[in-house]
Design a protein around this nucleic acid. Structure first.
Length: 395
DNA sequence: TCTGGGGTCCTAGGACCC
DNA sequence: TCTGGGGTCCTAGGACCC
């Protein structure tokens, strides 16, 4: 989906279209926003229905922001100023102080996410969820999926999604997921790009290695240190050489990726591995000096994870915590217990034990709670994890 | 200029088992 | 006195993705 969060906002606030808008820095509370609107523009009774009439001046400027948030989405107009995803808002404010700041409304983004995915499933049922704004689709057995190299189906999907949601997307069609993901970036926004095997050399090889899904900043730096900047330069290295430098698994994968090889199937279902909640504090907290505040936050995180588990119907037996110190170093501790649980008090009790195994003298900026080793709640004999194996007396 | 939140997967060492 | 060769599970950290 193109600039997904920003595009969803434009549906409600078309008056923001074309303006530098940045989304991030907390979550929006629609009720409080209506209150503020009624206070600031009393000549009108504001309801949720007339958001298109909200004056642009109502929205705060980035310049007035003081906090620790990051940008989740920047509108194309804001990107002109060098502002982009994951950038700290304080830095963004210096680059583009006049940008409008919109806290995120995840409920609404999730609603739109479900809507566009439902449209796709109607047309092409082999769809893999890749998060809130992205999917893989297997065109192979969709009627008409091969016409014009997939362009006809891609156009149909774009049109159907736009008619149902008012949102645009960019589609890459290719022989596998690796290339399709890269292709989808070629024609943004609202574009279609088709990459065939023969396009590897002219279209893919000139790109920086970083464009490969799976090569992040660290791997890229290592590659650059070895004089490898483009995918073509990576493809030119011998497979065995890469395996020596990056280990057999990683090295072979790098070589395959550079040659556009990827045989991962489009998977339509997956079970969650873990669920977690975490929060970054407005100011760094100390375990002793801010004990009461931290305790309340800790309890709330446990309750949130528990309610996530219950709502989605899971229970887990690996319970853990995550701390981030003021110096941004992260520590995790977890414990696997005998019986599965989704109970907030039990989670808090076990997570509390984990807290005792970590340094609590330094100031903290983040606290998180995680439950892993999940299974569907209400699985028969909910108590023991597994039957103990019979053991032979000889050993 | 400090850097969100929710995830997955991989690695590596150690415990423990047969 | 010096100690094999599997295997699984657990834990901590880290890279990466949306």
């Amino acid at each position: 989906m193109d600039a997904f969060y920003a595009s969803v906002e434009w549906l409600r606030y078309p008056q923001l279209k074309g303006l530098p808008v940045v989304i991030g820095g907390g979550r929006r509370n629609e009720a409080r926003m209506l209150q503020e609107l009624n206070a600031r523009y009393p000549e009108r009774r504001w309801t949720g229905a007339d958001m298109a009439a909200v004056p642009v001046d109502f929205f705060p400027r980035l310049a007035s922001y003081a906090g620790r948030g990051v940008i989740t989405t920047a509108s194309y107009a804001a990107r002109q100023f060098g502002v982009g995803s994951a950038m700290g808002l304080m830095k963004a404010a210096r680059l583009c102080p006049q940008a409008l700041l919109l806290p995120a409304d995840f409920d609404e983004y999730r609603r739109c996410s479900r809507a566009f995915k439902a449209v796709i499933l109607e047309i092409a049922p082999v769809m893999q969820d890749r998060g809130i704004d992205e999917v893989f689709i297997d065109f192979t057995h969709v009627p008409g999926g091969q016409r014009e190299g997939g362009r006809v189906l891609a156009r149909l999907l774009q049109k159907s999604i736009f008619e149902a949601t008012g949102l645009t997307c960019s589609i890459g069609v290719a022989p596998n997921k690796l290339l399709a993901k890269m292709a989808s970036e070629f024609n943004k926004p609202n574009g279609i790009s088709i990459v065939r095997e023969a396009d590897l050399q002219p279209l893919i090889w000139p790109l920086p290695c970083r464009k490969i899904n799976g090569i992040g900043p660290k791997l890229d730096a290592r590659l650059q240190a070895l004089g490898i900047r483009t995918i073509g330069e990576l493809a030119a290295r011998e497979r065995l050489w890469l395996m020596r430098h990056f280990g057999p698994t990683h090295g072979a994968w790098l070589h395959d990726a550079a040659w556009g090889r990827d045989d991962r199937p489009v998977t339509t279902h997956s079970e969650p591995v873990s669920m977690s909640r975490e929060t970054t504090f407005e100011r760094d907290l100390h375990a002793v000096a801010d004990r009461a505040e931290l305790g309340a936050i800790f309890t709330r995180l446990c309750e949130q994870v528990a309610s996530d588990l219950a709502r989605k119907g899971y229970e887990g037996r690996t319970i853990g915590i995550k701390l981030r110190y003021a110096n941004f170093k992260t520590a995790t501790r977890d414990t696997t217990v005998e019986s599965y649980t989704q109970d907030a008090r039990r989670i808090r009790q076990v997570a509390g034990q984990c807290l005792k195994r970590v340094d609590l003298t330094a100031r903290l900026r983040l606290l998180g709670v995680r439950v892993g080793t999940l299974r569907k709640a209400g699985t028969p004999a909910s108590a023991p994890a597994a039957a103990p194996a019979e053991t032979g007396w000889l050993f």
